[in-house]
Design a binder for these strands. Structure first.
Lengths: 335, 335
DNA sequence: TTGTATGCGTTATCAG
DNA sequence: CTGATAACGCATACAA
């Protein structure tokens, strides 16, 4: 079934069929109905390739993320795909892994697929040097780039993110205000957002006059799927560092802290306060349940798609949309 | 940049450029090099739409799943995407949700996108009646259908799954053999795989001469992200049913059981044994850690892609690939 | 081994 | 409002 078959069966030209297909208002209702009937009767669907050639678009958005099985990223991808679908766009998903060099290749690849825009999910795609980010500039010359949970200043690049610095600053401050000054900071990523969080923590500690805060920051290298190993890690730290609070850049790390405390017989939150980040489903898995920072992912993804639709429609859209997270208090904190 | 530009710059015809592009061996090495140099110099990439029209393929596989943020499905999607990517295929992701009617529309949609094959992730796509599954038959007339964690007999449909019946039978049997006969079975899905698991449980109970096993099966309706609500649910059951073992069709449900026990002051595993399913990251979040059934998802996805590649290459491939899961013993069981 | 000509199924630009 | 026709960029059968 092609547009020619339909046109001959309906007794019109292919141009008219095309107009009906694309919802042009310059078709007489009677003609439209006649064509529509044939289309439905034969269950005709336009060939996407031919359509792509004409439109230079397939109504498809490329989604790049490091690891779609990561709790946070998976949720982001899910929300994005749902909203895109609702607006008539398909999603081409690419999982790049965390290797920097490979990301560039994937971006090139997906650009060559003629997607209408590209969404970079998570802050792993933004490096600290100009050179590292050159590949994003290059891609942005071809197609709009949307950043979720990251920020980058460049034409045709739109950033939607949570102000992780301020949010972590507040989380740390609330713990400090509660009189807990010997806080451990656990993190596992030096991504754009990871660095912001850490700076927020440090600023809060500094602001409260805590001197040795730099020695209280620990990087965890292992997998976030093995909480007991994270607990081991915290246990090692505990041998040479005293702490009564844990702030983590990821819920999983915080859970490792809780597990350590349970092993060591430290009561939570009396002997140790713990705050996680992302407010994921993990927060309700442990006992007591984990207080965590909600970075309002759903709002972010919604804003991102709205911005994207605006950009594609040629409207002027904000280059940056900044949200602020908030602490969701549960059983691992008493303040 | 088109194939015409390259051909004129290289002083050859577009046919030769096309041959170079497609790795035909009927090109003189010198000519090939000359063309390749121009291609690289101008960073030329063939237009995917035009190529698609010629080849009737975009080297793209459609992936349908109900919810890509579900722990199990997310991992499956991740593994699949990685392996497809490694074999030169792109992934078009669609999250359908759990509504049956909507699934059909999505499948039609993705078929119309001319994907080379479709992977249905999870058993939610298979119904119990012929009529429910008609949409799969229809789609299979157009393109190969791959089922992950489900089974369906039809030409051009390939099933890769874990024998959930036998696996759950064994898990239940091991608990029964340990002398625990008052077992609670928790589940949250009547999908193909969900039914198999439940039947496995029932067969084991029956085989061990437990009479009232049908009254010990409970369906949980709520979200799997709120473990405390699951714990509430288990608490309600406990008011009228005695049990010393819990078998769950999902890790999250099992964790709800653990949380209930912690609240009620029941020691695990002394007073209650718990076994989950999927062996997800949740198993290491709780204390004690959750014994769970590993359904070897990674092996399944690998086998699926191998089968798919074979099918696309026109080779004869097994219609069904069946794996068997195994119980990973952790702290919530003592046998 | 290379070149020519044609088809692929649309969309879009003109006339009418 | 409708129809003819020219792109669109590539693959490929057929010629040379």
């Amino acid at each position: 079934m092609t547009i020619y078959d339909i046109s001959s069966k309906a007794g019109v030209s292919i141009a008219t069929v095309s107009r009906v297909l694309n919802g042009s208002d310059k078709v007489r209702p009677a003609t439209r109905k006649r064509v529509m009937d044939i289309i439905e009767q034969y269950d005709y669907t336009p060939n996407v390739f031919a359509r792509g050639m004409g439109l230079h678009s397939l109504q498809t958005i490329g989604i790049l993320c490091a690891d779609s099985s990561d709790l946070f990223l998976a949720k982001a991808v899910f929300y994005l795909e749902q909203e895109l679908q609702a607006n008539g766009y398909e999603s081409l998903l690419c999982c790049t892994g965390y290797n920097t060099d490979i990301k560039k290749n994937y971006l090139d690849l997906i650009v060559s697929k003629k997607v209408d825009a590209i969404i970079l999910v998570g802050s792993h795609f933004i490096g600290t040097t100009e050179e590292e980010n050159q590949y994003i500039k290059d891609a942005s010359a071809q197609v709009p780039i949307m950043l979720l949970n990251a920020s980058f200043d460049h034409p045709n690049v739109y950033s939607i993110f949570c102000d992780d610095y301020a949010t972590m600053f507040e989380a740390a401050s609330s713990m400090l205000d509660a009189g807990i000054r010997d806080i451990l900071y656990l993190y596992n990523s030096d991504s754009y957002s990871g660095i912001k969080k850490q700076k927020g923590f440090q600023a809060a500690m500094q602001g409260h006059g805590v001197a040795d805060y730099e020695k209280r920051v620990f990087f965890y290298e292992g997998s976030l799927e093995q909480m007991s190993e994270i607990a081991d890690f915290v246990g090692q730290i505990a041998q040479e560092t005293t702490f009564h609070g844990i702030l983590a850049s990821e819920d999983a790390l915080a859970i490792g802290g809780i597990k350590y405390a349970q092993r060591a017989g430290i009561p939570i939150p009396q002997g140790l306060s713990v705050i996680g980040y992302n407010n994921s489903m993990l927060t309700t898995c442990c006992t007591p349940e984990l207080s965590s920072v909600d970075n309002c992912l759903k709002n972010q993804t919604h804003q991102l798609i709205q911005t994207l639709l605006g950009v594609l429609a040629g409207e002027g859209m904000p280059t940056k949309s900044i949200f602020s997270g908030k602490l969701v208090k549960r059983g691992t904190t008493s303040f």
